[in-house]
Amino acid sequence: MDVERVLDATAQLSTPVAVVDIDQARRNITVASQAARAAALALFPHVKSHKMLALAREQLAAGAAGLTCQTVGEAELMAALSPPEIMIPVPVAGRASIGRLARLAHRVRISTVVGDIGSARELDDAARRAGAEIGVFIELDTGYHRCGHSVTALKSLAGGLGRMSHLRLEGILTYEGHVYARRDGALQRARAAYEQIVAAADEIRAMGIKLERVSIGASAGRPVVRDHPRLTEARRGSAALGDLTQVEVSAMRESQCAYGVVATVIARPSRGGFVIDAGAKALSYTQSIEGNHYGRIVGAGGTYSIDRLADEQGMCDTVEDVPSIGARVLVLPTAHAASIDCFDTALLSSADGCRPVLVDARGAR
């Protein structure tokens, strides 16, 4: 991110301000697209990481096979771009949400996850009433322990899905979010997850069940994907904008981060350190992997870690060279996806100028 340009562009704006270096974001999108093609993977960028139609449009133009959304609300908004497919890689539950998803399947190709036969029947009924067809995945737990199941449970589930008239079984997926559990060993954990899901797909196929797609998630595993040619697609989220979590696991360099929050120094307490006007409601309460900071401050003549957060303030306690009150700084957050959802708009900064854009899917459920 071009820190000097970003700080200059926001000099007349009240802070905190969410900023995207669109030039860097485009470079990141290109790299992700090229890496996917080199690994023969279909790329489904995850829009939860930016929630902007503007960036989703850039990702589709770069060759994305579709978009990944975390919620039905995000999918409804992103359907305006007419992507080839929208995937929701978590189960959708509740009559209202399932009904919305079935209706959306009239406008765009939809796929999602089913976790048991009961919810699959409910989804199948909704699709039948809407006159639609919905693609479904089954989810393997490779270590993150969220919505995934064991191979044994997936065999039973996959067998039952063949009786659904308006659902098509697309494949198997996982979210290997546990690669971010520690700074070291991320690629080893990714490799293990990829080996597990390929083996699980083989076991289910041995039952005579067709599974064409094997889908993975976490961006940090990108360097080793080419070692696993039987994977078919990737749902990358953090690859476009990046954050310090990606830097901590060596998935990208700090200079490749394309998102930050501009803040102002508002206090220099007598105890030492300083305070900025960006807290949990601008940065989120997500800590670094090692749990020792909430983001890194650059600008104002130094680099500092945010040690504590209040709702609207960030505290840097262990600082000797304290910036002056009124100084503008740029914060690189630990979790950009959680941060950007705190803002109605973001400033797109480029060498050609700046413009505000809506964070279209902010709060969309």
Rank of each mutant, 00 (worst) to 15 (best):
Y180L: 11
E170Q: 14
D243R: 06
R253F: 08
D184R: 10
E176A: 00
S255Y: 06
A190F: 09
L241M: 04
V249D: 01
S215W: 03
S215L: 14
Q256F: 01
G171Y: 05
R222P: 06
R222W: 13
R182Y: 10
P229C: 02
R205A: 01
A234C: 13
R183Y: 02
Q188L: 15
D184N: 08
R222Y: 14
R168H: 13
R191A: 13
M207S: 12
A239D: 10
G171F: 05
D227R: 13
Q256A: 06
V179Q: 04
S156A: 15
G162Q: 14
Y175K: 09
A193C: 09
R183G: 07
R236W: 14
A201K: 01
M164D: 10
D202G: 12
G237L: 01
E233P: 11
Q256H: 07
S215Q: 12
R230K: 03
G185T: 01
A200N: 01
S219H: 00
R163P: 08
M207P: 10
R189W: 10
D184Y: 09
C257Y: 02
E248R: 03
V247R: 00
Q188F: 10
T174Q: 09
G177W: 03
S238I: 03
S219D: 04
A206H: 14
A181H: 11
A193K: 01
